[in-house]
Design a protein around this nucleic acid. Structure first.
Lengths: 189, 189
DNA sequence: TAGTCTGTTCAGTACGTACTAAACATTTAG
DNA sequence: CTAAATGTTTAGTACGTACTGAACAGACTA
């Protein structure tokens, strides 16, 4: 199966972290504040549901937010989350498509590992933009349907059009400002 | 049952528009470009699904975007959308809770009518803000769980925190800019 | 070559959502 | 008082989603 571009790193992941040996399991969620960690993972799952994503994808993401090391294999995630490998496979693919996680591999280890993509949330803005453009376009369609009608009938669509056109203009600028703040943070560090 | 605050308008809605008489029906979607109108309504339905709302709520909203008059009763909507009154009742309540539509009544007419709320999309921003705050809060929880851990482990959560804190600061300002543009539009008109 | 390990795919299914139609409650008209 | 009109509520159910577990494919090791 053709893979996305893999990031290959030379260090051996397993030997870096004794907890992940033999094997990575529920131990990790349990290491301290076990209840709080499991609760956090479930909360992220519920939060993902509110934005229309499957709960399991959120739980997976939540696990990767707090896992040590910050990358886990399919099997690791299945054990941590008490889920089937098939479900993990489907959800990791979804999160990669969205741009929230990426696959990494290590020389001498044939397992795939998944980690949160740097600047992942910025990628979410791209999807938000796609949505806004789609709404703006729908408003245009609606305005065409009501061509020649008085403003009393078209104002609802005009408002939908105007606000989405405004966001289409402004959100990329906000993105740039965010990127600049990030760059300044790096300079300060 | 206690109702939300009702807007009561003195003009009689039915006598204003012959198409809505005896009765409001599929005729309205059919009046011109019948296929395009139905298609538009379905597209809005699908779009609402992408943001996690029921398809029927989107179809209802789409119908109200292009209906003439721009307010319709439960029964009108049920006929236009070929849906049950129960479904319309549930979906109108949902859209009112979200802040996208409102209920209006007319003296001498005991039917309730629903119309798109002016500045409806601005209300959507409130919900977006609630979501952002929830994500920022979750990131804080995660950072607490990883207190005393090195940046290698906390950077994922720090980035999630930083971008949501940034949006929490900036989106209200964007909202204000939008409101100012609207005010200027009104002055120009 | 056979066995093992890993992740993917697929058939099957549990579960939740969202719809219908009927019953109901309220209001108004005859 | 009864009938009609309107919208709400509820029980029932169709349907789609998202999960499991088994089968599978590929790669590696002994």
């Amino acid at each position: 199966m053709a893979r996305g571009k893999l990031t290959t790193v030379s260090q051996d992941p397993v030997s870096q972290d004794p907890v992940s040996q033999d094997p990575m399991s529920q131990e990790q969620l349990s290491q301290d504040q076990p209840f709080e960690r499991t609760h956090f993972v479930e909360e992220v799952g519920l939060m993902f549901e509110t934005v229309g994503l499957p709960r399991m994808s959120g739980r997976l993401f939540g696990a990767l937010l707090i896992s040590n090391p910050p990358y886990q294999s399919n099997r690791d995630l299945a054990e941590m989350l008490q889920a089937s490998k098939g479900s993990i496979s489907t959800m990791t693919r979804l999160l990669m498509q969205i741009g929230l996680i990426e696959r990494v591999s290590f020389s001498g280890d044939r397992r795939d590992y998944f980690q949160i993509k740097p600047q992942a949330w910025a990628h979410m803005t791209k999807q938000r933009m796609t949505q806004i453009t789609a709404f703006r376009h729908l408003a245009e369609q609606g305005l065409k349907l009501l061509a020649d009608e008085p403003p009393k009938l078209t104002s609802r669509l005009q408002e939908m059009y105007d606000i989405h056109a405004f966001l289409e203009r402004e959100l990329p600028l906000l993105d740039q400002r965010w990127a600049q703040e990030q760059a300044q943070e790096l300079h300060h560090s």
